[in-house]
Computed example of a mutant assay.
Amino acid sequence: MSPVSSFLWTYAVGVKVLLSQLLSRSFSLPVFPLQNGKVAIVTGGAKGIGYETAKHLSRLGMHVIIAGNHENQGELSVSRIVKETGNEKVEFMYLELASMQSIQQFVQHFKAKNLLLHVLVNNGYIRWPVNQCSPGAAAVMLVPQRNTADGFEEHFGVNYLGHFMLTHLLLDTLKQSGSHDLNSRIVTVSSATHYIGELNLNDLQSRHNYSPHGAYAQSKLALVLFSYQLQQRLAAEGSHVTSNVVDPGVVNTDLYKHTSWLFKLCKWLTSWLLFKTSTQGASTVIYAAVSPDLEGAGGSYYVNGQKVKSADISYDEDLQRKLWAQSCNLVGNPERHQCAS
């Protein structure tokens, strides 16, 4: 897909979702049973959807770890959640998804705590500039062409490969924590842009004919493909872990820095009417993380509290396996026995 086509299709999808949100009733969370004794990791949990997810899981009694790369904002969010929920088992741990070394260090530090892990939320990640102390963040959405410290295209490297690596390194703990009656859960946040995504296995890093819209959509499609393939492998080995994908909708967060001026104007004028709040955007993420209705059920795509059909290409098992194999090679085969193609 050409850069112009990617641009046009991305905003067409955005308009479609906004109209759907206007015409449909927002999903309201039911009352869930307490989750005392359970542990959750939420990436990007310091702001937006991640923050609301972390707060709700904390309110349910879970030990919540907010993973992010802005320590000041992370600690501030922890303090707010503790104050609002009364649950003191909330903490911040540093994680830079743009760095494979940082991901490995995060997992090492987490495992040193000797905790179980019942929920991993691979949330849409806001990448805070290392040299910036203010809350204004550079989100990995429609950014100019640039690479991570490991040389990966930033959308693909942060949105997808970072979560791919993190999930693999935490799989053994997730498996140990799940049981026949209470599976551990992996909830991956994608978006409706995956419907227009094209996965170029010969150019996953978008080196040729770069389009920020195309690269973003590809990273979101990759997350869906990965989640489905992971569920198949977990089920095949009889693991008590499930993997699902959530589309939170178009949410009023910090993710729109690099969108067009027309979209920004639309957001400024109509966000109160068309855009979901962070609380509304987090509702389906929370539902997938703790709802008894989803116990033991994986391999699905959820929007507004309902299971829906994802893009046709996302069910291509051959493509899932090929992406899996290439991803393992790119990140250096983390937990090689888990990452075999």
Rank of each mutant, 00 (worst) to 15 (best):
M1K: 14
S2G: 15
S2W: 08
Y11W: 07
A12I: 08
S20C: 11
S26Q: 13
P30D: 02
L34E: 14
K38H: 12
V42D: 03
V42T: 06
G45K: 06
K47Y: 13
G48M: 03
E52C: 14
H56Y: 15
L57W: 11
M62L: 14
H63T: 14
A67T: 13
N69L: 06
E71L: 07
N72L: 13
Q73H: 09
G74L: 04
S77T: 12
V78G: 07
R80M: 02
V82Y: 02
E84S: 15
F92Q: 09
F92C: 09
E96W: 07
L97F: 09
Q105I: 09
Q105W: 01
V107C: 10
Q108R: 13
F110W: 02
K111F: 00
A112Y: 06
L120S: 05
V121P: 09
V121H: 12
N122I: 11
Y125W: 14
W128I: 01
Q132V: 15
A137K: 02
A138S: 12
A149V: 15
G151D: 05
F152G: 01
E154G: 00
F156L: 00
F156T: 00
G157E: 03
V158F: 06
V158P: 09
G162Q: 10
G162H: 11
M165T: 12
T167V: 04
L169R: 11
T173Q: 12
Q176M: 11
Q176W: 04
S177C: 05
G178H: 01
S179C: 10
L182E: 15
I186N: 13
I186C: 10
V187P: 01
S190V: 11
A192I: 00
G197S: 08
G197F: 14
L201H: 04
N202R: 12
N202E: 12
Q205H: 15
K220R: 09
L221T: 12
V224G: 02
F226V: 01
S227A: 15
T242K: 01
S243I: 12
V245N: 08
D247I: 09
D247Y: 10
G249W: 04
N252F: 00
T259R: 01
T270A: 14
L274T: 05
K276V: 00
K276P: 04
Q280R: 11
V285H: 03
Y287R: 05
A288L: 13
A289S: 15
L294M: 12
G296D: 03
A297V: 11
A297D: 06
Y301C: 04
G305I: 07
Q306E: 10
Q306I: 00
K309S: 15
D312T: 06
E317M: 14
Q320H: 03
R321S: 15
R321D: 11
W324G: 11
E335K: 14
R336E: 12
Q338T: 09
